[in-house]
C-alpha cells in the first residue's frame, strides 16, 4: 500500500517516449501526504510531461502508484478562454461541488466575479478561478502547472501564500511546476529537479547549497567582469 508510510504517490522508473524522442527517462520519486513538492527544470526538461503522465494522459513505462481513493485536481498552464462567452459561475458549475466554498478558499470573496466573463478576468483572477475549479471536487491532491502563468510579479506571492493555506487547512498534497527558486525555498517542502531524468530529489531547503545547485544546473560558469561593474 502506498499510504502505509504516509506516502500518497510513488513513482518508479517511469519513462515516456513520443515520436522517437525521450521525454522522461528513469524517473522515480515519492510524495508524502500533505506536503508540497516543487518541480523545477529548464524548458523542455519534461515537467509538464511528468504531470500529464501522472494524470495518465500519456503512454509510459514504469509504475505510478497513487494511494487509494485519491482525488486529483489539475490546473494546466494554458487554457483557452478568450473566445468563450462563459461566465465564471457557468465555468465553476461544470464541477460537481460547492463553488462558493472554493471561491472563498482562493480568496475571491467579491461574488460579483461570478457574473464576469472568463475572457475579461485579469491573469491573477483567472488563475484563482482555475484553482477554485480544481477545488470544487474536493481533491486530496493538486497538480499545478506553473500556477502563476500570466500573473504579474507582485501578484505571484499572494497566490503561493493562498496555496500554502489551502494545503494546511484542507490537508491537500500539492505538486507544482515553477521556475522560481525563491518559491521553491519558501513554499515547497520537497524539490524534484528534472532534466528528462531526475537531477535532484530531496528537501527544498537544500537548494541554497552550491553543490546541490551544481547538481541541478550543471557546472558553475564564471564570467569575467571589469572592476567596478
Amino acid at each position: 500500500m502506498v499510504d502505509a508510510n504516509g506516502y500518497i504517490l510513488k513513482v518508479s522508473n517511469i519513462g515516456v517516449n513520443l515520436q522517437n524522442q525521450t521525454l522522461l527517462d528513469h524517473v522515480s520519486f515519492s510524495v508524502k501526504k500533505g506536503t508540497t513538492m516543487a518541480i523545477l527544470g529548464p524548458n523542455g526538461a519534461g515537467k509538464t510531461v511528468l504531470l500529464r503522465t501522472l494524470l495518465n494522459l500519456l503512454p509510459h513505462t514504469g509504475s505510478i502508484e497513487w494511494t487509494e481513493k485519491v482525488k486529483i485536481g489539475y490546473v494546466p498552464q494554458y487554457v483557452t478562454v478568450s473566445d468563450v462567452p462563459m461566465s465564471v459561475k457557468e465555468f465553476l458549475s461544470i464541477g460537481k461541488g460547492n463553488y462558493i466554498e472554493a471561491l472563498d478558499s482562493v480568496r475571491l470573496t467579491d461574488k460579483s466575479i461570478l457574473n464576469k466573463r472568463l475572457g475579461v478576468l485579469s491573469g491573477g483572477q483567472l488563475r484563482r478561478v482555475l484553482i477554485a475549479w480544481a477545488l470544487t471536487d474536493r481533491p486530496n491532491v493538486l497538480l499545478l502547472d506553473e500556477p502563476t502563468t500570466g500573473v504579474d510579479m507582485d501578484s505571484e506571492e499572494p497566490i503561493y501564500l493562498m496555496l500554502n493555506d489551502i494545503k494546511k487547512t484542507q490537508k491537500i498534497t500539492i505538486l507544482l511546476i515553477t521556475h522560481n527558486i525563491h518559491i521553491v525555498q519558501e513554499y515547497a517542502d520537497d524539490l524534484l529537479a528534472l532534466n528528462k531524468c531526475v537531477t535532484y530529489c530531496g528537501p527544498s531547503s537544500e537548494i541554497g547549497k552550491p553543490n546541490i545547485q551544481k547538481q541541478i544546473y550543471g557546472e558553475t560558469v564564471c564570467v569575467e567582469t571589469q572592476k567596478g561593474e
Partner: peptide
C-alpha cells in the same frame, strides 16, 4: 455541451 466546452478550454482538463 459542457464536455465539448471544457475540452475546448483545455483538452487535458477534460481528459483528466
Amino acid at each position: 455541451y459542457k464536455k465539448v466546452v471544457l475540452a475546448m478550454i483545455s483538452e487535458d482538463l477534460a481528459i483528466s
